[in-house]
């Protein structure tokens, strides 16, 4: 990751959402982006120019644009039409963003479009977040990474966030994943946690 002092940045065409610039690089704000927050509070997954990413819950393409600055290609899945209009605009200006308007709970609808990826990033606030992530790992190469952004209040408002967190890790490990890192995103985001997993298997190279 690129740091200028203690500021996380990405290198690419600016002006996507009026982001501030620093020495010609785009500042990637941890308060705005959960993935940026993960790099501030933990290790996350090092992004590189050879990586292919499946991004679920792409929203307006704000975080997507930063991920695209680092990686080879981002398959960006978003279901709602309003943010999709913005995401399409981002894709027009960035040739490595592939927008897909589809429901992330139904990967069979976009399977013919998505190649094998090195990283699945999931930021869909749904009650069955872990199950959605697992279903989408048909696209993930063996040895690839899964980053799950867990909004505990979307899973069950009445449950203790810590219980939801533990339960999610249990579900992921039962599906064969190895949890590599799990951190809360405080103080940047409340009741949000990030879980980084590795898919079992030997990477083909």
């Amino acid at each position: 990751m690129i740091w200028i002092g203690d500021v996380l940045v990405s290198r690419g065409e600016g002006g996507v959402y009026n982001e501030r610039m620093l020495k010609g690089a785009r500042i990637w704000e941890p308060y705005r982006s959960k993935l940026a927050a993960l790099y501030h509070v933990g290790n996350g997954v090092e992004l590189g120019p050879a990586q292919r990413v499946l991004y679920l819950g792409a929203a307006n393409g704000t975080t997507v644009s930063h991920v695209a600055d680092y990686t080879e290609v981002v398959y960006a899945v978003e279901f709602a039409p309003r943010p999709m209009q913005d995401l399409i605009e981002v894709a027009r200006r960035r040739r490595n963003v592939i927008p897909i308007m589809a429901d992330a709970t139904r990967p069979e609808t976009y399977a013919p479009l998505v190649e094998a990826v090195d990283l699945v990033y999931q930021d869909v606030a749904q009650p069955d977040q872990a199950a959605i992530a697992i279903r989408n790992c048909v696209f993930l190469k063996p040895g690839g990474f899964l980053i799950l952004m867990l909004k505990t209040r979307s899973v069950d408002v009445r449950k203790d966030p810590v219980a939801v967190f533990d339960e999610t890790i249990r579900v992921l490990e039962a599906a064969g994943f190895t949890a590599q890192e799990s951190v809360w995103l405080a103080p940047y985001h409340q009741d949000h946690a990030a879980i980084v997993c590795v898919k079992p298997g030997i990477p083909a190279e």
């Binding site: 039409p81 999709m84 399409i88 040739r95 927008p99 479009l113």
Partner: peptide, 17 residues
């Protein structure tokens, strides 16, 4: 490959919207 795929996906997303 990516350029063609992107053109298809942008057109598909526009149609869905």
């Amino acid at each position: 490959y990516l350029a063609r795929l992107q053109a298809v996906c942008i057109a598909a997303a526009e149609r869905s919207v």
